[in-house]
Design a protein around this nucleic acid. Structure first.
Lengths: 335, 335
DNA sequence: TTGTAAGCGTTATCAG
DNA sequence: CTGATAACGCTTACAA
């Protein structure tokens, strides 16, 4: 019988202790074939007593699977700091992955030509990837596609190239917002957004145009900073027919918009409505509290992992999932 | 010669194509022994042509190392959302890990008894762990110690049980703050903090006591929410000798403190100084802008991975690293 | 400077 | 219901 030199208990030792072959031990752990209950108990007992843990490396070599997934977010820096969606998504996805026996490797945004993209994908370190807010020109996204690694996106591929995605119901967001603003009597809404090549930006542009048509107007901030948004909003407020409401694609932009409105000597709510997306703590605790469309990052976890797991195992994945949203009304859109 | 059935190029195919043994191919890639330059070139050429990538699973099985690290943060939810330090730390650490050939597995905060803690650590999926703001009673932290997995902490173990850590220079934070407040003429500073079993909380309590002695006072908020902090600060301001400055252990608390000060009819800066830690975008863009002690999460990455790598390889790690901080003065502490 | 061959600890294919 | 045994694709003594 083989003895472990490095201290690890091996399948051989368990087999000997239980008086069975390693084949049986393997099957007790994998559940891939029936094992007589009594035998099973003996094996379990022996394994427990010897503190046996199957080596993931050996399993990986034998099966060709690593039982690890990669998760990448396309942005970092302040965009990440200010993104409460991601902060909630990451633990949830990780937990769901772990619940399926996968570990979750976090991949930072990588620059083109980064020499670590290849190894990660081509050395068989991961079985699949979760791409959050993917951009078509992202080097990692391209490498994932090139290496034929199964992947699921959170948010859609902007070019519609992948049918495997989970996304917020952005269309519904637009509907909820437009309906609410109308009901409150706002007439000249503007969409406050930033330039970014992710799918939901297009959704908001389309949805906003559909809901507001020519009466709507699009204001683009340079980036996610307060400074940029304040400048953009201030500028819009000085125009001939200034907007009387701002539909902001992110709470962070909404906060800035509210500040700009007040600096212009107008009242948030009574004069100019401000509404955001995300329902972050910042929206809740702002002065005045901001109306926002709540999204639920935790709900992405299970569908995402389920879909990716199916893809990896070559099974037919379920249809793309659209996660519901909810409007939370607060004083920033009350007249 | 073995042929790959699953499509992967193996070391055997490269060896044959280059007219050498697999041993030589192995050494060309690992660099663990000299290979004649000409031979080396042939091997590289063959490997490139065949798109060879060494199987990480096979490598792991042969060497006993997984080339993966785990990173865990002890908190989640709003505490995580509001923590810009972590959002910057994660990509930086991941990049540094990847630069050393490791992938980085994100481990969510796990509850005691979670059945996935064991496998992750005992199946040899990771060679080491990074524990961010560890708490002594955290199940994962305990499991890491029990499994004898090498680990480095970002922030110290509250019980001082591990000498392998990287931390902000919290003592210096206290010095900078007290010196600054004194210079600006504030005389009755209060420390605004929350209850949490992480090392830096103790640092601030100690540092504050040392700097302000009996003239100092500690105000404890229930949690990191604005509501809790506002309540605590409002209460303190109503006391007999109200503080004339708040030293807040986090920018998030400082923002709330500023709100509470204004609601009490006092002016931030002129009447009551407010100073935070983190120098987050929120501090920068607040009204008035908040004085804050800047910290540099990106600087944690290299020292952390270097230390952990040394530990894993059984080498002597460098001394604990203390990362410098910097005071950023803004109107919230200007009289 | 290079090669041979024995592991590493599983899974999976046959055969009983 | 259970076992032998050949992969899986590397690393690393040991030998030349």
């Amino acid at each position: 019988v083989k003895q472990a030199e490095n201290g690890r208990t091996t399948i051989f030792e368990v087999a000997e202790a239980a008086g069975v072959s390693i084949t049986t031990v393997s099957h007790v752990f994998s559940g891939k074939r029936r094992v007589h209950e009594e035998t099973r108990q003996r094996v379990i007992a022996a394994a427990t007593r010897l503190a046996y843990n199957p080596s993931s490396a050996a399993k990986a070599l034998a099966t060709g699977r690593s039982y690890a997934l990669a998760l990448q977010v396309s942005f970092s820096g302040e965009a990440l700091v200010l993104n409460s969606f991601f902060s909630a998504l990451l633990p949830a996805v990780s937990l769901a992955a772990v619940g399926r026996g996968y570990s979750l490797a976090y991949v930072p945004p990588l620059e083109a030509g980064n020499s670590f993209i290849g190894p990660l994908l081509n050395e068989g370190r991961v079985d699949g990837a979760v791409l959050v807010d993917p951009r078509v020109d992202d080097p990692f996204v391209q490498a994932v596609q090139a290496s034929r690694t199964p992947f699921v996106t959170v948010g859609r591929m902007p070019d519609g190239s992948s049918p495997f995605w989970i996304d917020n119901d952005h269309a519904r967001v637009c509907d909820l917002v437009s309906e609410h603003l109308r009901k409150e009597g706002y007439e000249r809404a503007a969409l406050l957004t930033i330039e970014a090549e992710v799918s939901y930006m297009a959704d908001y542009l389309d949805g906003f145009a559909a809901a507001f048509g020519d009466s709507g107007r699009v204001v683009v901030a340079e980036d996610f900073s307060n400074r940029a948004a304040i400048t953009a909003v201030a500028h819009a407020l000085q125009s001939r027919r200034p907007p009387d409401a701002f539909f902001c694609v992110h709470d962070q932009l909404a906060l800035a918009a509210a500040i700009a409105v007040e600096r212009a000597g107008l009242r948030v709510g009574a004069d100019v409505g401000v509404i955001g997306v995300g329902d972050s703590p910042f929206a809740r605790e702002a002065q005045p509290p901001l109306t926002s469309v709540a999204v639920f990052p935790e709900r992405f976890a299970e569908p995402t992992i389920t879909m990716l797991d199916a893809l990896i195992r070559g099974e037919a994945p379920e249809a793309p999932a659209v996660i519901p949203v909810r409007l939370v009304t607060r004083p920033s859109t009350r007249r």
